[in-house]
Design a binder for these strands. Sequence first.
DNA 1: TTTATTAATAGTAATAATTATTATTATCAA
DNA 2: TTGATAATAATAATTATTACTATTAATAAA
Lengths: 133, 133
Amino acid sequence: MERANWSRRTRQREMILREIKKLRTHPSAADIYEIVRKKLPRISLGTVYRNLEDLSRAGIIRKIRDGGTRARYDGTAAGHYHLHCQRCGRLVDLEKDPSPPVRVGPGKMDGWEITGYRLEFTGICPSCLKKKV
Amino acid sequence: MERANWSRRTRQREMILREIKKLRTHPSAADIYEIVRKKLPRISLGTVYRNLEDLSRAGIIRKIRDGGTRARYDGTAAGHYHLHCQRCGRLVDLEKDPSPPVRVGPGKMDGWEITGYRLEFTGICPSCLKKKV
DNA sequence: TTTATTAATAGTAATAATTATTATTATCAA
DNA sequence: TTGATAATAATAATTATTACTATTAATAAA
Ligand SMILES: [Mn+2]
Ligand SMILES: [Mn+2]
Ligand SMILES: [Zn+2]
Ligand SMILES: [Zn+2]
């Protein structure tokens, strides 16, 4: 988790972080813009995008790219599982940790009809490891 | 896996499918367009998008939405794991199945430095289950 | 083999999401 | 307080994807 090196604290970033942390949903940048706008009416969408990017690169929030065409953000940075509806795109936290071993077959969980899961490892690839920073 | 009901087979769709199945990479729609264009110079990008969408909805290929801003496609529909580089976005298949239980901690795998993983379940949410088709 | 039907395409326009640009503002160290 | 400049607001540009529509070609029927 490469920490961001902000040199100044701004009302915009503080507000964005505070609002996204309140939510248990996974809002898009536009969603957050609409929420923060109520407190800071002159904030710009670009500022929201930039800060969400910075905050997620700093590991303070998470950026999620699933299903649809827009990125979504998660105010809970700590690792947790998600349930993603194939039909409507709904993306919610899984309350109980199913681990390990992970259940693979279809079945019910949290009232959902589970059809499968996607497991993705993240890290640094061999060719990137070779390169100097 | 809702099967597509094509009523005609076209050279365009056949070629798109043939070419993506050859690859072990995870090309974007634009990548596939460039490849197929060499064989069918008059194919349009819209046709590539439409067919990739149809093929993945039919479960014949997979649509992957990770990391970056563009969707990527996978000619291998059967379930397998991916390794995704946080630094350069490279997305490759994991050769050996690590299952189960899934290893959680950081470490080496396939020459990569693993920093974590993302597990996502897919299915139908309770409110969608209530609704008629 | 010709012809009719219409699914699917090519070409293009429109939309949506994100990123880039730049003059202005406001944080913060001195 | 003031000065340097990080960060912002406003806007333009770009990128990815989807929508539209006249034309083409896959298939079935004659
Ligand atoms: Mn979450
Ligand atoms: Mn793959
Ligand atoms: Zn749903
Ligand atoms: Zn890499």
